[in-house]
Design a protein around this nucleic acid. Structure first.
Length: 200
DNA sequence: TCGTCGATCTACT
DNA sequence: GTAGATCGACGAG
């Protein structure tokens, strides 16, 4: 069943990030469904987080969707090449978001391989935020889009991980954020082959 | 207006 | 291991 909007309205983005592990993420593009369950996510805590695009409540055309009410997608372009999917959380005016860094694919594998131009299923097919977006056909057209729609949505299928199966470590690629770069805001499922590279 | 750098990935040496 | 792709936000001039 689809996850209701109330799930995204919580104000503790770090706790929600952890809770997202094991939730299923799907897209239906041109009538074909693809997706899988989330195995890696990072929290970005809005105004007080130097690593966030919305640090100090910085509003630009790009960050505007993060200030909206939770339950929508924030998709932006990084390095001029890669689209990144984020889940916007919290209430209106609070720019919190969760970067989806890796999923464990379960549905539409053929389509995912086609989008990624891979002949065989390798574990890096949906490892890393740019890879996830490409694999599921997500791009900036979905920016600001509801997560309860028929194109993009999350489901709870009762898959849960125990605390000892989940690692909490510093985020990737945010060295510019000073002391905030050290916060343990990256969560992943230990041992899952689809977790992105830096995975000890 | 220009130059720099970024929540990255791939291909090639 | 490192270069190249190449857009949006930012700060300097």
């Amino acid at each position: 069943m689809k996850i209701p909007q109330s799930f995204y309205l919580g104000t503790d983005v770090v706790a929600i990030s952890k809770a997202l592990l094991g939730k299923y993420l799907f897209t239906s593009i041109n009538g074909i469904i693809s997706g899988g369950y989330i195995v890696e996510a990072e929290a970005y805590n809005g105004a007080v987080d130097k690593a966030s695009h919305a640090y100090d409540n910085r509003r630009t055309p790009r960050t505007e969707v993060m200030f909206r009410e939770g339950g929508i997608a924030y998709v932006y372009l990084c390095y001029g090449i890669h689209e990144m999917l984020n889940i916007v959380t919290s209430t209106e005016g609070h720019a919190q978001a969760i970067l989806i860094r890796a999923i464990h694919p379960t549905d539409g594998i053929d389509l995912i391989m086609e989008r990624r131009k891979m002949e065989k299923l390798k574990s890096n097919i949906t490892a890393g935020p740019g890879s996830v977006a490409k694999a599921l056909g997500i791009d900036r057209r979905l920016n600001g889009h509801s997560l309860e729609s028929d194109v993009l949505w999350l489901e709870d299928r009762g898959l849960n991980f125990r605390d000892e199966q989940i690692a909490a470590v510093p985020r990737i690629g945010v060295d510019y954020a000073g002391e905030d770069a050290l916060l343990p805001y990256r969560f992943y499922v230990k041992g899952d082959p689809y977790v992105s590279k830096p995975n000890k």
